[in-house]
Design a protein around this nucleic acid. Sequence first.
DNA 1: TCTTATTTGTAAGAATATCTTTCATATGAA
DNA 2: TTCATATGAAAGATATTCTTACAAATAAGA
Lengths: 298, 298
Amino acid sequence: MNWSGLPPLNSLRAFVAVAETGSYIKAGAVLNVTHAAVGQQVRTLEERLSVSLVVREGRGIRLTKEGMALARDLESGFSIIHRGVENLMESSVTHPVQLSTSPAFATEWLMPRIQDFQSKYPDIPLMLNPTSKVVELKPGGIEIAIRYQDKRKVTSPVTPVLISDMVVIAAPSLIGGQEINHPATLTGLPWLQELGTNEVTDWFSHRGVKLDRPLMISQMPGNLIMQAVRRGDGVTYTARAFFEAEIQSGEMKVLFSEPAFGIYYIVTSPGPLRASVKVFLNWLKEQSSIDSSSTLDS
Amino acid sequence: MNWSGLPPLNSLRAFVAVAETGSYIKAGAVLNVTHAAVGQQVRTLEERLSVSLVVREGRGIRLTKEGMALARDLESGFSIIHRGVENLMESSVTHPVQLSTSPAFATEWLMPRIQDFQSKYPDIPLMLNPTSKVVELKPGGIEIAIRYQDKRKVTSPVTPVLISDMVVIAAPSLIGGQEINHPATLTGLPWLQELGTNEVTDWFSHRGVKLDRPLMISQMPGNLIMQAVRRGDGVTYTARAFFEAEIQSGEMKVLFSEPAFGIYYIVTSPGPLRASVKVFLNWLKEQSSIDSSSTLDS
DNA sequence: TCTTATTTGTAAGAATATCTTTCATATGAA
DNA sequence: TTCATATGAAAGATATTCTTACAAATAAGA
C-alpha cells in the first residue's frame, strides 16, 4: 500500500459523513464535532485532491459528480473496515475467559462461587484450567491465573483474592485420641500433597523439624486431596478458608495454624485485557472483598 | 455508518503498515514517522479494542490470530479507499481544461498561441467555449474565463492577460481618401459589432458624440467581425493587439485610439483548481508576459 | 561467554493537527 | 423586509501525534 498517496484519513471520513447526511451540521452531529470542523476537513480534502467535491447550493450543499464517485468508493472501503473491526469485537466477546488456578483453589473456592458469576453474566463463557503447573500467560492463551505464595515470598505488591491462615488439618477420625503438641508428632502420619509441589517438607523445615526418616506422602491433584482429607485418609497443609465450615462444625480439626500466611493473588496476561476478562476480574475482586468483610464480621 | 464504533483511523493505518511490513521500523519508514510513533498508535488501537494484535517475538514482532484477521479486512478496506482516490485523480487529470473566452479573443489572441501550449503539454486537453456571453464559473463547468473590461470599470485587482490600446479600425479600402478628424465623421460608416454588446454606441458616447440618427451596425460573432473588417466590410472597435501586424504593414488603419484602455483578465472558478488547470493558468501568464516584454521592446 | 548490532518499549516534551467559538454571508420562507 | 437556517472564515484553545532519548531484550558473531 502506498500510504503517501492517500489524503488524511480524517478528512476522508468527514467527507463520507457529509455525503451520507447531505449536510455539514448533520455530519458534525454524527462525528461529534461542530459543522465548522467538518467544513475545514472537507476543504482540506478538496485542496489536497485539487478537486471540488462539495458545492454550495442555496442554503445547503450538493456533491459534485466527482464527489459522488469518491463518496461511493470511500463508503464501501470504510464499511469493510468497519465490518472488520466489528468481527473482531464480536469474536472477542464470545471467546471464553481463559482462567488457570490450582485444582484445590478451583474446587474449594472458585467452584462454589462460579454460579454467581454465571448468573450475573450469562453471556461470558469461562474456560477453567485447573493445574498445579505455573502456566505462562500470553495473548491468545491463558488470560488470568490465580497463584499461591506464602507471605514471606511476596515482594512486589499483588492483587490478592484470598488471604488465609495456612493450616495443617486432618479429620478427627485420623487423629483419634492422639495428643498433637509439636510438629514432629506429625511425621508418623500419612500426608497428602499436591502433585509436583514440596509443601509438606517445606512446612516441616519452616517449623524447624529435622526429618530423620522419610515421610509417607501421597501425591495427588488438589481437589482429590480435599476429598481424601475429609475422608480421613491423611493430613495435609492447606488454606484454612477451604475448610472453614468443617472446622466450625468440628468435622475437621486444625493441628497447626499460621495466621494470614497464604496468599492467593491474581496475575493477568500482558497487553490489553478483553472487556469480558475485565468483567471477570471485577467479579473476582468483589467476591474477594465479600470474603474479607464476612471474615471481619465473624 | 456508525463512526463512533470505529477506532482512530490513524491507528488502523499504522497497524496495517505494521502487518504489511512485519516491523515497526519498516512501518515507520513507509508512513514517514519513527518506530516509536507506530508503536504508540498500535498500542492505542489495542487498548481501544481491548485485544492484543501484535506480540513481541524475539527481537521482532508477530501478529496474533486476531491481528491477522483484522489486518486482512483493513487492508482490503484501505485498498478500496486508495483505489477510489486514484480513480478520482486519474479522471481529474484527463478531464479537459474548460475555458471560455470571447470569439474575438479566441481567434485573434488564443488560437495563434494554443499550439505552443499543446506542444508543451500534450497530455492536457483543452475545451474552448468561444462566446460573448458571460458564463458562470462553477465546479464541474467552465473553470477559466478570460473577460474584458475597460480600465475605467476595473476596481478590484485582477490578473490581466492582455492590456491593449483600444482602437477604431478599418481597412484603408473602406476609408478611401476620406479625412477622419473627429469621431462624428464615423457615424456614416458601416459598423461591425459583437453579438449582444453595445460597444459601438458606448464608444460614441464615451467620445461625446450625440447620435442624431441610427448607426448602421451589423451584429455578428467576434471572429467573423475580424474577417469582415479585414475585407473592408466595415469599421469596428476592438483591441489593437488583434491587428498589430496589419497595422504595422499598413493593411489596416487605426482611426482612433485609446491607450491601454482594454483589459482582458483571467477569472477562475471558485474552489480548488485542478492541477491541469493550474498548468494552463501558468502558461497563460507566461504568454501574457512574453507579450508585454515584446511590446516594451518595440 | 561476552560484546555488538538490531529491534521493540517507554516517557517527556515538542510539533502539528484538529476543534470550538464567534461572527459573517447567503438563501428561502413567512 | 425580516427571520430562521445553513454554510464560510479566522483566531485561539485543545488534543493528538510525533520525535527524542534512553531502556530492555535478543540473536549473531568474536
